[in-house]
């Protein structure tokens, strides 16, 4: 009885009111109508074969490449060798993770991953709000649009080109930044910035900031467009200038969206890729440029120790899932809409 009710409830959810009435009848009469219901469900599903053809194969491909690799996590508990495969390799329990947590370089790489993510998160957050506020105050539509179009460019340009630009700008041979610093008399000799370990996080953050600054304002500008004009009019009556209106009306208007975006983005702190670090980094700055993905890649591809590479990957994925869940429940608790 219990089980049947459950199955009926599922159908109700998916099918809407019509089936709900049928379902209610089915409970009342409680005869062999259960079979009828199931038949009806299959019939509806069969009628929707066109929708199924449109969606199932492609969602299937997405599921295949998103979820099947999870099966590979078994390797993290093995001493995996390509020749023997997952089924033939020897199980070693948590050995790989013991090795991982005793590996000094792992902590260096973890530090780099988190530091660069955090720096990017904070700068891009502040930059997006700042630029959105300033853009919102521009009276000339043409000027506003032009600045928007220009600042969107780097978002669409590949990281390879961005890295190429960064190399050019920071180049010790006539790079614009060095030329400027020498001209201003701040330094006597050109500095080879990309070879300075301590500079790497800063360079990486600046590059990411420059790339995504314009793009990240889109959502904030949309929110600003929706701020109640009556608030600005009231401030006018009180004699507030443009700057004060920006600080006391526009900025608070952005805050709900901003705080939820900030919270949700902290969920992705560890989940960042490796593209930018790989392109901007070099052998000289490895201690500050290498991130978890690159370490996993190096271990697996160069040393051939796949199990250790998988253990690093798995650590990253698990921490990132936990972070996202925590952050979502936090956002839910403070009463904001969530993504999950």
């Amino acid at each position: 009885m219990n089980r049947r009710r459950k199955s009926i409830r599922t159908i109700t959810n998916e099918e809407g009111i019509n089936i709900e009435q049928t379902a209610a009848k089915a409970i009342k009469t409680d005869a062999g109508l259960k079979n009828n219901l199931r038949k009806k469900k299959w019939k509806t599903l069969a009628q929707q074969y066109q929708l199924i053809l449109m969606s199932v194969p492609f969602v299937g491909i997405l599921a295949l490449f998103s979820y099947l690799p999870l099966w590979g996590w078994i390797m993290a508990f093995q001493k995996y060798s390509i020749g023997k495969g997952i089924f033939g390799s020897e199980f070693v329990g948590f050995d790989q993770f013991v090795k991982l947590f005793n590996d000094d370089w792992f902590y260096t790489v973890l530090r780099n991953t988190l530091a660069m993510s955090l720096m990017h998160l904070i700068t891009s957050f502040a930059g997006a709000i700042g630029l959105a506020l300033f853009l919102n105050e521009v009276r000339s539509r043409l000027f506003k649009r032009t600045i928007q179009t220009i600042t969107y460019i780097p978002h669409f340009v590949s990281w390879v080109v961005i890295a190429s630009i960064v190399t050019l700008v920071l180049s010790p041979d006539f790079g614009p930044l060095n030329e400027l610093l020498i001209w201003l008399g701040i330094v006597d000799e050109p500095i080879f910035f990309l070879s300075k370990e301590k500079w790497f996080w800063v360079i990486h953050t600046m590059a990411g900031f420059w790339k995504e600054l314009g793009w990240s304002t889109i959502i904030y500008l949309a929110v600003l467009a929706g701020v109640d004009p009556a608030l600005y009019e009231a401030a006018d009556v009180d004699g507030a200038g443009r700057f004060r209106k920006m600080i006391h009306i526009s900025l608070p208007g952005l805050m709900p969206t901003a705080s939820i975006l900030l919270i949700l983005n902290t969920g992705y702190l560890i989940a960042t890729g490796y593209e930018s670090q790989m392109l901007l980094g070099n052998n000289l700055v490895m201690e500050y440029s290498q991130v978890l993905d690159l370490y996993a890649l190096n271990y697996s591809m160069q040393i051939g120790d796949y199990s250790y590479g998988v253990a690093i990957s798995m650590f990253k994925s698990v921490v990132s899932i936990v972070l996202v869940l925590l952050v979502n429940s936090w956002a839910k608790r403070i009463g904001q809409s969530t993504v999950l």
Binding site: Q48, V59, S66, W71, Y274, A296, L297, V310, I312, K316
Partner: peptide, 23 residues
Amino acid sequence: YMLRKSLNAIIVVSMYVNGGIIP
């Protein structure tokens, strides 16, 4: 569409769960 909810869940969860670069 009967499979709407389940397919939607598969897609949304894929944004958060991934096997990692080596797997």
